[in-house]
Design a protein around this nucleic acid. Structure first.
Lengths: 228, 228
DNA sequence: TTGCCCTCTTCTGTATACAGAACTCCGAGA
DNA sequence: TCTCGGAGTTCTGTATACAGAAGAGGGCAA
């Protein structure tokens, strides 16, 4: 493992899991010291993160972790909608029916999984679905475009994570998508995906607004930065 | 201007304009020497290009300029179609009608411009259209996604450049798109864009196949690399 | 007391030196 | 003649030193 990769993955993980708060200045010297690498590989890591949009270098000299606003999420979803709809259409044409039949079946039984509290297992299933979709599309450019937009939404999803009702609903939506892809029905798959994405956006937006309200209500002078 | 930016722009320009042939190994030491910068900023430039997909670092240690194949172009177009269709739909909803009315008018007169041989002026008009679209969409995420996919097609377009008939046709297609956006007709704009993209892909594909035939026919042992 | 300017500190951008790894080329053996 | 192995070379990955610039803080003047 290269030092630059280590720094990249470590920082990326910290940002995605909110261990580094939005607005935090990312000093090269400090981070290099903390991660135990020199500034050279750390610079490479920061550059990668900046190109992925996980670090904002536009204003000022030093990079900062961008905020997750309702607006930015909505914008990401406009891109995501375009790509995911195209992806499922293509997948419906090129898929191996057996793969998506199996996935549809798994999502059909996901309700039980979720009721037993195994949310991690469910997220693994969703990851398996994403991977199957990527495989079916068989387009590296589409894969990397989807990858870059999905990364951004991981941070938002971390916030909305504790919402079991929504998860049960997404299982049903995913099942519908899988069945449509299995049957080669591109337009139905696209419609089901559009429904799914709209629902996800609504949930995330509501969670964000709720969180913003929670943060401002208790006390107007409470520190919002560096919140653990 | 930073040395890393200089190296980046210089290399990017070289790759997009085919001054560096596909398959060419990009040695850090050699490039640093040629561009008159040290390896540190050059590494940063190579990293940026790699993340944009203009340099392939996946196989082997040293980066190479990826080939422009019919397959890769078709894959890029699948992504581009998804993004551009979404973009024009959003633009049709959010646009300033006057801007696209003016552009429609410009495209209506582009035929004369092209007949006088001013292809550069026409490309500038297309760039103006792209910029107006980006402005109307008003979505930074969409803008950067479009940017990254457009970059890849610049190399392909360089090959198809000398095709005046196709250019006249694209002017008409662009005019149609502008008029639909001007009128706020999202679906018509999307359809017109789909038509336009399909035509462009067909032309580029035909050019690529023609070029491949030209290269193999004259002599089987002719050097295909390092062609000036 | 407030605003401006100067100085100092700190950070980034760049160059270079060094270590480890991979590729290449040459030679020996089958 | 082909294949395998080893030495040499070259390249990348990393660390560190240095210069320039941006920002912060304090002091002085209005």
């Amino acid at each position: 493992m290269r030092a630059s990769d280590l720094a990249y993955e470590s920082l990326r993980d910290d940002i995605l899991n909110w261990r580094i708060a939005p607005g935090t200045a990312l000093s090269e010297t400090e981070l290099a010291l903390r991660l135990g690498v020199s500034r050279t590989p750390l610079r490479a890591a920061l550059a990668r993160l900046a190109l992925e949009g996980l670090v904002d270098t536009s204003r000022g000299r030093t990079g900062v972790v961008p905020d997750v606003s309702v607006e930015s999420i909505a914008q990401q979803f406009e891109v995501r909608e375009a790509l995911e709809l195209q992806a499922v259409r293509l997948a419906a044409r090129r898929r191996d029916p057996a793969v998506f039949a199996e996935l549809a079946d798994s999502f059909a039984h996901a309700g039980e999984t979720l009721e037993s509290g195994a949310t991690e297992a469910y997220y693994a299933l969703v990851a398996r679905f994403d991977a199957a979709l990527d495989d079916a599309v068989a387009n590296p450019a589409m894969r990397s475009a989807l990858e870059s937009v999905r990364v951004h939404l991981v941070r938002a999803r971390r916030l909305a994570r504790d919402n079991p009702q929504r998860l049960v609903q997404t299982a049903a939506e995913h099942r519908l998508i899988c069945e449509a892809v299995r049957d080669g029905d591109a337009e139905l798959a696209a419609s089901a995906t559009a429904v799914h994405l709209r629902g996800s956006l609504t949930t995330i937006t509501a969670t964000l607004r709720q969180r913003a309200a929670d943060e401002t209500t208790p006390g107007p002078d409470r520190p919002t930065q560096e919140g653990a």
